[in-house]
């Protein structure tokens, strides 16, 4: 097979169907950007889950009375709560933090806002039991269980916050995948159309090729390559789009969303790109092949 011949045929074909080619490339690009965004979200969720699964804790805030009297958790109800927690399935570690320690931590957290620290009295803050659980423990059950026990004022479940975040991210991911699929169908139809148009435009050439005994590969490879080249260009533009998107959201690295979703950068996009390129090549080649089989007689 003569590569130069096939290559020049591909170029001619793409030039002749210029507008269709552009439409095909753009649709592919947008479809892949959306798909890529979905894949990045999947990565982000995985990363966050890994980082936070071991760090999230359930905080049990004690009532005012208990916080005021008991500074070492040696009396009821704090001591009872602590031992009950330690005997609960899935609990790894229980730490007591008295009112004074909580206030010290509060001052540290809000060091940048001295006015707030000034206005807050130590007496306003509850002593807290910090409960760390083994990964996979349903913290919402734990929270439910201890909500109404004596000495408990309220319960803060960080797991609940992370779960809410995940569910929102997962919705965005599903929507992105949905869009990607719809766009992929549009891209598929465009590829199929362009291949048919291209074959129709060159029916004389193809007719002659068949008559003089060119093999199926020789007659059809140019059309197939046209589809694949467009798919490739579309994928490259799509990856560019994804880089721009990531740049716009994360400001080029270093920042993060709410301190939870760690920063996404060029590296993450590059990790996803081979998937996008692969999907694009396989889909365009397959569509081209099926179209030629169905619509173009050999």
């Amino acid at each position: 097979m003569r590569a130069s011949f096939v290559f020049s045929e591909v170029l001619t074909g793409l030039r002749r169907n210029f507008t269709m080619t552009i439409a095909m490339i753009l649709t592919t690009a947008i479809s892949l950007t959306t798909l890529g965004a979905g894949l990045l979200i999947v990565r982000a969720v995985g990363e966050v889950q890994e980082n936070f699964a071991s760090q999230t804790e359930v905080q049990i805030f004690l009532t005012n009375d208990s916080s005021a009297i008991d500074t070492s958790c040696s009396q009821s109800p704090c001591a009872d709560l602590k031992s009950q927690l330690q005997n609960t399935y899935g609990v790894r570690e229980v730490n007591y933090e008295n009112r004074h320690q909580v206030f010290e931590r509060f001052k540290k957290i809000f060091a940048a806002q001295p006015q707030l620290v000034e206005l807050t009295r130590e007496q306003a803050l509850p002593a807290t039991l910090h409960v760390k659980t083994n990964p996979g423990t349903p913290t919402e059950v734990l929270a439910q269980q201890f909500k109404n026990r004596p000495g408990v004022k309220s319960i803060g479940d960080q797991g609940q916050f992370v779960r809410d975040l995940f569910s929102k991210l997962n919705t965005i991911r599903d929507v992105a995948f949905g869009f990607a699929v719809v766009l992929a169908v549009a891209a598929l139809l465009l590829i199929s159309n362009t291949v048919q148009l291209s074959a129709f435009n060159r029916r004389t050439e193809v007719g002659i090729m068949r008559l003089v005994g060119a093999t199926r590969w020789y007659t059809q490879l140019p059309f197939l390559l046209e589809a694949v080249v467009s798919g490739l260009v579309g994928a490259v533009i799509g990856i560019g789009g994804l880089l721009a998107l990531v740049g716009a959201v994360f400001g080029g690295g270093g920042s993060s969303i709410g301190g939870i979703v760690t920063s996404m950068g060029i590296g993450d996009v590059l990790l996803v790109s081979p998937i996008l390129l692969g999907v694009s090549i396989v889909i365009s080649a397959l569509t081209g092949y099926v179209t030629l089989r169905l619509y173009v007689r050999h």
């Binding site: 097979m1 003569r2 011949f5 050439e205 060119a214 020789y218």
Partner: peptide
Amino acid sequence: AFALEVIGKPR
């Protein structure tokens, strides 16, 4: 030449 190119004859 086209008739020969498409059946892969050498240049």
